[in-house]
């Protein structure tokens, strides 16, 4: 060697980093993602307003103007009905989601970790999963009756399967080499679970939870459309019967907003968790 290697840290290391540090960075957008994300909804709103105000394409019953929908919302809000509908729906979703996701986590972990439990229970769970979840409705109505419980149970069923499937398959596919390394360094049982297996599945668990939450909203509307006296699904059905298209559209917008809000909140928790675990 005649040349001395420059000692500056700019030299390429002999063994370059296996992966580039950090994630692929996206170009910073002006005003951040929030502003860009608002562009399409604002355009749609403008189009809606133009179509209803400028043309006679739709009758007000077919498509009421945005400001009509807004004033319908104000009217319902002032009577207190709107808040009632929203809180009832939100409460059902959260209860059902908590129950379904909790059960999905528990059963998914059990079957994902224990080969015996997997062999014993997975065919059964798989068969239940194959039943389209709405098929349970008549049975639930017969067994539990048209009350709060049957709706929460239906939502729980909807939330359960995505969470179960995500946790189960993630645990089945935890890097066997990492698990072996954990065992080789004296970890087993609960300590191995907490040190290697659970942290390894955190990202998949969160995607399962978010899917489960979306399913929970889906099943809420299904449950409320079928039989209820309050809630956003009830508002949809009642408005259709009364020809109140403005309220119907209002309910849809509110479902979109509430669904997006809960998903965003879960997303914030997810980001925090991924910072620690991934």
């Amino acid at each position: 060697m005649t040349e001395t290697l420059p000692a500056a840290p700019t030299t390429q290391p002999a063994d370059a980093p296996a992966r580039t540090p950090g994630r692929r960075r996206r170009r910073k957008l002006p005003g951040g993602g929030l502003l860009i994300g608002a562009v399409v909804p604002v355009l749609l709103l403008g189009l809606w307003w133009l179509v209803t105000e400028g043309t006679d394409t739709f009758s007000p019953v077919q498509l009421p103007a945005p400001q009509t929908v807004f004033s319908a919302g104000v009217g319902l809000f002032e009577s207190g009905d709107l808040i009632d509908h929203m809180t009832v729906s939100l409460q059902r979703v959260l209860l059902g989601f908590a129950a379904g996701a909790g059960l999905g986590l528990a059963l998914g972990s059990l079957l994902g970790l224990s080969s015996i439990a997997d062999a014993l229970l997975h065919p059964t769970v798989g068969a239940f999963r194959a039943v389209p979840s709405l098929a349970w409705v008549p049975l639930l109505l017969l067994w539990v009756g048209i009350d709060e419980d049957s709706k929460v149970i239906l939502i729980a069923i909807g939330a359960f399967f995505p969470v179960f499937t995500a946790v189960h398959s993630a645990l089945r596919h935890v890097d066997a080499q990492l698990v072996e390394a954990g065992r080789a360094f004296g970890f087993h049982g609960v300590r191995l679970l907490g040190t290697v297996q659970l942290p390894a599945v955190v990202p998949s668990v969160f995607s399962g939870l978010r899917l489960g939450l979306a399913q929970a909203w889906l099943f809420l509307v299904a449950a409320e459309l079928l039989a209820s006296s309050e809630g956003l699904g009830f508002l949809l059905d009642e408005s259709r019967n009364n020809g109140r298209t403005d309220r119907l559209l209002l309910a849809i917008v509110l479902l979109a907003l509430l669904g997006k809000l809960t998903d965003t909140l879960l997303g914030i928790v997810e980001r925090k968790a991924l910072k620690t675990w991934a």
């Binding site: 072996e180 004296g186 290697v196």
Partner: peptide, 18 residues
Amino acid sequence: RYDERTAVGFQEPRLLPW
């Protein structure tokens, strides 16, 4: 089993990524 008097260095580093 997984004898404590030994320690293994694997071909892959097998570090926990998190």
